[in-house]
Amino acid sequence: MNYCPQCASPLAEVLVDDEIRSGCPDRACGFIHFNNPVPVVAMIVEVEGGVVLAHNVSWPKKFYSIITGFLEAGEDPVECARRETMEELNLHALETELIGAYPFPHQNQVIIAYHVKAAGEIKLNHELDDYKIVPVDQLKGWDMGTGLAINDWLKSRGC
Results as ranks from 00 to 15, higher is better:
residue 124 L to G: 02
residue 134 V to C: 00
residue 129 D to H: 15
residue 135 P to V: 05
residue 8 A to I: 03
residue 54 A to Y: 04
residue 9 S to P: 03
residue 68 T to G: 02
residue 83 R to H: 04
residue 91 L to S: 09
residue 20 I to T: 14
residue 91 L to E: 07
residue 48 E to N: 12
residue 72 E to Y: 11
residue 119 A to H: 10
residue 93 A to Q: 03
residue 26 D to W: 02
residue 106 H to S: 15
residue 129 D to S: 14
residue 18 D to L: 11
residue 79 E to S: 09
residue 148 L to H: 04
residue 103 P to E: 15
residue 140 K to Q: 06
residue 73 A to Q: 10
residue 7 C to Y: 00
residue 153 W to A: 01
residue 70 F to Q: 12
residue 54 A to I: 08
residue 68 T to M: 09
residue 32 I to E: 04
residue 22 S to R: 15
residue 66 I to H: 03
residue 47 V to Y: 01
residue 58 S to R: 10
residue 94 L to A: 08
residue 88 E to M: 13
residue 131 Y to W: 14
residue 17 D to Y: 09
residue 74 G to L: 10
residue 156 S to D: 11
residue 99 I to D: 01
residue 9 S to I: 07
residue 114 Y to I: 01
residue 25 P to W: 00
residue 22 S to L: 15
residue 70 F to C: 05
residue 71 L to R: 03
residue 131 Y to H: 13
residue 62 K to T: 14
residue 72 E to N: 07
residue 153 W to Q: 02
residue 147 G to M: 00
residue 3 Y to Q: 13
residue 124 L to F: 10
residue 56 N to C: 09
residue 156 S to K: 15
residue 21 R to V: 08
residue 117 K to L: 07
residue 41 V to L: 08
residue 29 C to D: 01
residue 25 P to D: 00
residue 122 I to N: 01
residue 124 L to D: 06
residue 35 N to H: 08
residue 46 E to R: 13
residue 133 I to D: 03
residue 134 V to F: 04
residue 85 T to S: 09
residue 130 D to W: 09
residue 41 V to H: 08
residue 71 L to A: 03
residue 147 G to E: 00
residue 54 A to Q: 11
residue 37 P to Y: 03
residue 32 I to C: 01
residue 110 V to H: 02
residue 25 P to C: 00
residue 146 T to C: 02
residue 23 G to V: 06
residue 100 G to F: 05
residue 5 P to M: 14
residue 84 E to I: 15
residue 123 K to C: 14
residue 42 A to N: 13
residue 106 H to I: 07
residue 74 G to T: 10
residue 91 L to A: 06
residue 6 Q to A: 13
residue 41 V to T: 06
residue 16 V to T: 08
residue 78 V to W: 04
residue 92 H to A: 11
residue 81 A to D: 03
residue 65 S to C: 08
residue 79 E to D: 13
residue 43 M to D: 10
residue 139 L to Q: 12
residue 32 I to P: 02
residue 11 L to A: 05
residue 82 R to N: 06
residue 144 M to L: 11
residue 107 Q to N: 12
residue 116 V to E: 02
residue 67 I to Q: 06
residue 121 E to A: 13
residue 102 Y to F: 12
residue 101 A to W: 05
residue 24 C to D: 05
residue 133 I to N: 03
residue 43 M to H: 05
residue 137 D to A: 11
residue 35 N to S: 13
residue 99 I to A: 04
residue 76 D to E: 03
residue 30 G to I: 02
residue 42 A to M: 05
residue 105 P to Q: 12
residue 1 M to L: 14
residue 65 S to G: 15
residue 19 E to F: 04
residue 10 P to A: 09
residue 74 G to M: 05
residue 90 N to P: 11
residue 121 E to M: 14
residue 92 H to N: 14
